[in-house]
């Protein structure tokens, strides 16, 4: 399986993401610059964290206007897996690929620590290697991870089982219903504030994030090999 790690000016988790795929997962991966106009050779798209365009105006707003996002929307429509982590999640909401928005953390602090997540839906291509209700340790590092959407959108998220991860115990940012990660209705676009790529080996304090990438590969192999 061949992954693309998108790189915007200001991305800073692209190397972690690349490392997780290449060295921990053992799959093919390439960096793709934001002005790329073709993603057809890739089977999965990873939108990494960081501060694209310095978070100017709004997190993810300017990145959403780059060439590569046209291709990401195409890939998403084709059913390819698209994962956005942290700033990547913010970009995917700005792009309209995921509903809602990420607001400033309620306590106004940049939160950087390992948190516990609950797997709310293990019936997705991103979570099939987790147990339903499993508690996993994944680091967060964000100042604007407070998920918000209107009541109608929230009702839809719940009705369609689109809430994939919630914060277990402490909610670090004030997000609605403790939401940490959501998937689109079609089930192939996941956005999450916590960083699974930073939890891909025990030496980093946790390897709980690796199962997310293994899930993607398992699903892809079943469909393509």
């Amino acid at each position: 399986m061949k992954f693309a790690v998108l790189v915007f000016p200001g991305s800073n988790c692209d190397i972690d993401m690349y490392h997780a795929i290449k060295d921990e997962l053992g799959e093919e991966v390439e960096y793709v610059w934001h002005d790329a106009t073709d993603l057809s050779e890739f089977d999965g798209i990873l939108v990494p964290g960081g501060f694209s365009y310095g978070d100017y105006l709004r997190c993810g707003a300017m990145a959403n206007q780059s060439n590569v996002m046209v291709e990401v929307k195409k890939a998403a429509a084709e059913g390819k897996p698209v994962l956005g982590v942290c700033n990547g999640f913010q970009i995917l909401t700005e792009a309209g690929l995921l509903p809602g928005a990420l607001l400033r953390n309620v306590n106004l602090k940049f939160m950087c620590r390992t948190v516990q997540l609950k797997v709310e839906n293990n019936n997705t291509l991103f979570t099939n290697q987790y147990e339903q209700g499993e508690i996993i340790n994944i680091p967060i590092a964000h100042g604007e991870g407070n998920y918000f959407c209107d009541e109608e959108t929230l009702a839809n998220l719940k009705a369609n089982n689109q809430i994939v991860f919630t914060y277990s115990g402490e909610n670090p940012n004030g997000s609605l219903e403790d939401i940490a990660g959501i998937i689109n209705e079609q089930g192939n676009v996941l956005g999450m504030m916590p960083h699974p790529e930073r939890a891909a080996n025990e030496i980093l304090g946790s390897s709980d994030g690796l199962a997310l990438f293994k899930s993607i590969v398992k699903q892809w192999r079943e469909q393509h090999v």
Binding site: L57, A61, M62, P99, A101, L103
Partner: peptide, 8 residues
Amino acid sequence: KLLANTVI
């Protein structure tokens, strides 16, 4: 398209 995010 850019200056505001009408979701919020």
